[in-house]
Write a protein that binds this DNA or RNA. Sequence first.
DNA 1: CCCAATGATTGGGT
DNA 2: ACCCAATCATTGGG
Length: 414
Amino acid sequence: MAGHPGLPQHMQEGTGGTDGDGRKQDIGDILQQIMTITDQSLDEAQARKHALNCHRMKPALFNVLCEIKEKTVLSIRGAQEEEPPDPQLMRLDNMLLAEGVSGPEKGGGSAAAAAAAAASGGAGADNSAEHSDYRAKLSQIRQIYHTELEKYEQACNEFTTHVMNLLREQSRTRPISPKEIERMVSIIHRKFSSIQMQLKQSTCEAVMILRSRFLDARRKRRNFNKQATEILNEYFYSHLSNPYPSEEAKEELAKKCAITVAQVSNWFGNKRIRYKKNIGKFQEEANMYAARTAVNAANASSHGSQANSPSTPNSAGSGGSFNMSNSGDLFMSVQSLNGDSYQGAQVGANVQSQVDTLRHVISQTGGYSEGLTANQMYSPQGINANGGWQDAPTPSSVTSPTEGPGSVHSDTSN
DNA sequence: CCCAATGATTGGGT
DNA sequence: ACCCAATCATTGGG
């Protein structure tokens, strides 16, 4: 800027003097002018600029400068190249989109909801409370992100237009090609986008932290609601002879309980192992569910209903055998001493006393494989074809009451 | 605060 | 791929 006014000025003065001394003098003047240019007032400068623009030599000089500029611009353009989209930036963008930060405004945050669902089950009313905090924080982040982004965008635009105006203004006094303007704009954009990338990066970090705190904290569990537990227990005790739900059954249960299939699997895994470990503890529960399913079945089949209390198989205390002596009782209880209460839901009418006695016998023989046979004998429908899951622990508790269950393991050679 | 219950994870087996 | 067993970590009641 400072140099340009000086140049025509030089010519202006230079037209007068022809000898070398005069030229030197001119240069001194020019330098002087350059040095003092900052002292000039704005009006002065404008006036001088106007004078320069009106100078008769200006167009010719301008053209020369344009030519020179053209060449340099070409070389510059050769140096600059279209850089591919930054992979880092793309990664960030993708992630923000996936997290629902940069995606659609609201809509329950589809992606975020999906992630949440993956962590702890479907869109039940149950976990909405759990994730409300998460959602609130996420939307907070999103809001900050958007306002910041908008701010940057606006600043970028403002700055760009400002620079362009300046360049346009300058283009009257110095040659500026459109290419050059374009380049300048792209430089500005690049600068601003690098700032935006920082914003995106920190936003990503915030989201990651949030996620790790709320969703990835996998051990931060919530108990299933009562209904879900009941559904699961119902299935478990009504399939006590083979409590291994198929994939389909798991899906069904998961849907009914508003949890994931994996959670169903976990539940059954836990349930099996814990049931097996301490059958006595679960007896009451088993009786209850057995009774319930039995009653349900009875009601459904419109059979003659000698309904006994559905939810309270009374006096079913863990130790007490409550044998329903009389006609067709649907479920039997088993005493905790002998352990097992499988096929609790079976409709094997009066068998249970035999079962009990035989169990006792078995316990004395200490047979392990006999348990299986006994089971098969008394299962009315011959359910447990495999006999698998329950016969291992049962005899152990049977054989030696003093010994904890499960002490006898893979001990077939007995 | 302790402790049992409970959902989730891990490691090992088939 | 599924299961079992042990274990972790949280929950919720006392």
